[in-house]
């Protein structure tokens, strides 16, 4: 377009190439009637030369301004900004997908190591190593993660981690586990969807421990009239007493470490033997993609099945409770 006459790129509409009265005449001849005025009235205004201003000079757009240090700096700055945006997008991709791939490899390695260890007689708890498996049938029949001892970043890259010092699976006290909700395999991605009475099954070398999510806060009052009668809720009821604040799900501040105390929200209290419930607590970040709060799920031990060495393939019926 550059180099053309002053009309090039202009805004002035060109005059209609066809004779302005052609369509009218065609219609008139075919129908054999005199055509009414409206079409002809439109046409005169068509031929009126529009009085647009002449097109602006294009010459300045054709030639780049001289390459000076200012122009160079502005362009480099713009390129850096675009690059920064691409890097941030790449980081999102990394968080959501790449960490999943990396963690899947670590989880797989930890699981095969755990399977080997379980075949030996003596099994010991080692930091950063898997020691149990977590099944949550509500998340699908194939949902299983190997649990690692410890909750450092490296531990949690492998899989959900056991808070050191809290109870072990099946023991009275609070078996507490942290897991990622976004990326890193996202084991606790759907933790907010767990309902009361959903099974959380922990498999150790020797046993299967079936925990069930405690009644939600809004269900506590009407528990006996409501869900208590459902078959999967057998053994689940509001704990009461010291455990009055311990409900199926809660959202707390990151600083509230007492949700993993033996009696949640009452750190320092150790109930006497026989009075202490065997709890399971799962923690993850909340809301998704944020670390502003923690989502916490409490469950209570309802059943224990010792593994039968003669029948290694046997699994508890709770594992088939997929939705």
């Amino acid at each position: 377009m550059s180099g053309a006459g002053p009309d090039a790129g202009g805004y002035r509409p060109r005059p209609s190439p066809r004779p302005h009265d052609a369509p009218t005449e065609v219609i008139a001849r075919r129908s054999g009637t005199v055509v009414a005025d409206p079409p002809t009235e439109v046409i005169p205004s068509y031929t009126d030369p529009p009085l647009d201003p002449p097109p602006p000079e294009d010459d300045r757009l054709d030639e780049l301004p001289p390459e000076g240090p200012g122009r160079k700096a502005v362009r480099t700055f713009g390129e850096l900004l675009i690059t920064a945006g691409m890097v941030v997008l790449l980081f999102v991709f990394y968080e959501i997908y790449v960490t999943d791939w990396l963690s899947a490899g670590k989880q797989h390695a930890a699981t095969s190591e755990l399977d080997d260890e379980w075949r030996k007689d003596h099994f010991s708890l080692i930091d950063g190593r898997a020691f149990a498996k977590l099944h949550i049938p509500a998340f699908g029949p194939d949902y299983v993660f190997s649990l690692v001892e410890g909750t450092t970043d490296q531990d949690l890259d492998i899989g959900p981690g056991h808070y050191k010092g809290t109870a072990l699976p099946g023991q009275p006290g609070n078996f507490a586990v942290a897991g990622h909700r976004v990326g890193k395999g996202a084991p606790f991605n759907d933790l907010d969807l767990l309902q009361s009475c959903d099974a959380v099954v922990v498999e150790t070398q020797t046993d299967w421990f079936v925990y069930r999510v405690l009644p939600m806060k809004k269900e506590v009052q009407s528990w006996q009239q409501g869900r208590a009668s459902q078959p999967q809720c057998k053994g689940v009821s509001p704990l009461g007493g010291l455990y009055g604040d311990t409900v199926g799900q809660e959202i707390v501040l990151p600083s509230e470490s007492d949700v993993i105390a033996p009696v949640p929200h009452h750190p320092g209290i150790i109930p006497s033997r026989g009075q202490e419930a065997a709890l399971l607590t799962l923690t993850t970040c909340h809301p998704k993609f944020s670390a502003a709060q923690r989502l916490v799920v409490h469950a209570v031990l309802v059943k224990q099945y010792p593994k039968d060495p003669k029948n290694p393939g046997q699994v508890p019926p709770e594992l088939k409770e997929s939705q």
Binding site: L90, E95, D153, L156, C285, S290, A291, R294
Partner: peptide, 15 residues
């Protein structure tokens, strides 16, 4: 990214 990630407040899951 693996180096910078633990320093960012996105994915802390423990209390």
């Amino acid at each position: 990214f693996p180096w910078v990630e633990p320093r960012l407040p996105f994915n802390q899951v423990t209390t």
